[in-house]
């Protein structure tokens, strides 16, 4: 019987929610949470161990987390590694990608995970790891586990991938050899010329080698004289007045707000708080300046390092928020910033 090792975060590992996200990694032999479903779906294979680690511990102490987990796995036999599914949970997705890559690189064991297309872990790790196209939340657990375990069963039985689209994982940008029947229409020259003819005739054609492009924006020039510049603060950390007047959602936000800081030297606890559902809010509620650093900005304003601080800060919630919504919200903020002559922005993310 083949052996599989799984990886879960603190939530799916049954430790707890955001207040437990600093959980240090540990290893168990019990089948917990989604591992029960994974184990049940495996043929001629068993999940022998599961690693559990808090998302914040993995995110903030990555090297330490990897080294401890590698230590736990050094005497564990395994044929395959499965992490997640991570759905649209950003830190969990990045953690799954990180540990899958480490297991492959350091232990030479193939790793499989699953995430939603909006998960930042997809773009970071799709070239390195089999990442199955997952749902946006745990209601899709059944489908996402099935996609991973179907493929796991195939690999464990000695089968080969039929390619990203056929299997349902994100394209890794890797080419695989495929033998075609020996005839003229199958030669690369013939296929290439056919493609060129279609292109010249403005007909649709599909390249055989898609090169994924990372979209970078031109770098904005440095501010020449910061002591004359108007600087603005923007956050995705969900800091709002305590009554959340714009009713910004705690996750998957589509709304944002701008809040007046005129005459304030710092953001007071009890006046402002965070409504972000993606982390433990205790520290930010006790001192909102840890996310929107008004106190430090006022100090630099007094010193004359900056011309002045734009009197409003802009806030939304950056967990589960789609790129399209983020793009729209930024563009909605821009006219307000321009109106006040803002040229520089400090954008804080949590």
């Amino acid at each position: 019987m083949k052996k599989v090792v799984c990886y879960l975060n603190q939530f799916f590992g049954g430790v707890g929610g955001e207040d437990k996200a600093d959980q240090e990694p540990f290893i168990v032999t019990e089948k917990i949470g989604p591992v029960m479903a994974i184990n049940a779906a495996l043929k001629d294979a068993e999940v022998t161990h599961t690693i559990v680690c808090g998302d914040n511990f993995m995110g903030s102490n990555t090297d330490e987390a990897i080294s401890r987990i590698m230590d736990m796995l050094k005497d564990v036999e395994m044929d395959l590694f499965i992490a997640g599914p991570a759905f649209q949970a950003g830190r969990y997705g990045v953690a799954c990608g990180t540990i899958c890559k480490a297991v492959q690189d350091k232990l030479g064991v193939t790793a499989i995970t699953s995430m939603n297309v909006e998960n930042p872990g997809v773009d970071m790790f799709k070239r390195d790891v089999y990442i199955f196209k997952g749902g946006n939340g745990a209601v899709k657990m059944r489908q996402d586990v099935k996609a991973m375990t179907d493929f796991a069963n195939k690999l464990l039985a000695g089968g080969k991938s039929e390619g990203a689209d056929a299997e349902g994982y994100f394209a890794r940008g890797k080419r695989q050899e495929k033998f075609l029947e020996f005839k003229r229409e199958n030669t690369a020259a013939y296929r290439g010329v056919q493609m060129l003819i279609r292109k010249m005739n403005k007909q649709p054609y599909q390249t055989e080698l898609v090169i994924p492009a990372k979209e970078l924006v031109p770098i904005a020039p440095a501010i020449k004289d910061l002591s004359k510049a108007v600087v603005a603060l923007v956050t995705t950390g969900g800091i709002v007045p305590v009554d959340n007047p714009d009713r910004i959602q705690s996750a998957s936000a589509t709304r944002w707000g701008r809040y007046d800081m005129t005459g304030m030297d710092r953001l007071e606890s009890g006046v402002f708080k965070t409504i972000h559902a993606g982390f433990d809010p205790a520290a930010a509620n006790a001192d909102p300046n840890v996310i929107v650093p008004l106190d430090a900005m006022r100090a630099y304003e007094k010193e004359g390092k900056i011309g002045r601080l734009h009197n409003y800060f802009y806030s939304t919630v950056g967990t589960g928020t789609t790129e399209a919504e983020a793009k729209r919200m930024a563009n909605e903020m821009i006219p307000y910033l321009r109106d006040d002559g803002v040229t520089a922005i400090i954008m804080g993310s949590t």
Binding site: E215, A330, T343, I345, I346, M347
Partner: peptide, 11 residues
């Protein structure tokens, strides 16, 4: 990226 595209210098 949207802010930078619009010409703001951003960190």
């Amino acid at each position: 990226k949207e802010f930078e595209k619009a010409g703001f210098t951003i960190v």
